[in-house]
Amino acid sequence: MSNNKIIRFENLKKGFPEGNRIRHVLNGVSIGFDEGKFTALLGPSGSGKSTLLNLACGIEEPDAGDVYIKDVAITQLTDHDRTLFRRDNIGFIFQFFNLIPTLTVLENIILPQELAGKKRRDIESAAIELLDKVGLADRRDTFPDRLSGGEQQRVAICRALAHDPWLVLADEPTGNLDSKTGVIVMDLLLKLTSEAGKTLIMATHSPQVVTLADRVFRVQSSTLVEDVEHVPAARPQFIEDA
């Protein structure tokens, strides 16, 4: 495999115990991802899409194989170093938003940076700017439980981007939203990541989203198979007021 890929999986294996046997979700996956591109991962539920994303950001460890990000084998790092690496380089968007309920919208967004020791006054304005871009600047002091699902996911997108990571991982970000809200959220995510030239890897079920991806992979029989016939569609007009 070419070493110029920004993210590389090398012979990655991962299984989960089910009763007395192990169910192998990924069995020797070797693949690379390009910088600044949007890659979609397709596959039925339980096929291993989320596991792949979890392995990519180091919140799960493989049974075998390695994950290289910018030539750093994150699978070889200690838990502490992996956490720091993730904090500095990766933004993660979950299907269920997963905002911290005891923090306000703004506090949720700046949390990764605060954890990294940055002063609030130094990071607040950029976060508010991001909030403004997703149309939630006036809700910055609101707690998550007062927001709708779509609003919560927009905040989650801001949180994933606020510390300016070059890699964004999204695990079915619209899976828990109605279709209309899903489109709005997806537009925002694509706009913000592509504008900033970030690498985006997204697990999704949505055929519409897949059409927009630069590359598409299917998780099949515990391996990744690229849809070589895939041609990215033109991106729709982004919502102006988002």
Binding site: I100, P112, L115
Partner: peptide, 16 residues
């Protein structure tokens, strides 16, 4: 557990 998992995923170290 889930909330703490999210915190860890978003960059909270074990020490934190």
């Amino acid at each position: 557990k889930r909330e703490l998992g999210v915190l860890r995923a978003t960059g909270m170290t074990l020490r934190q």
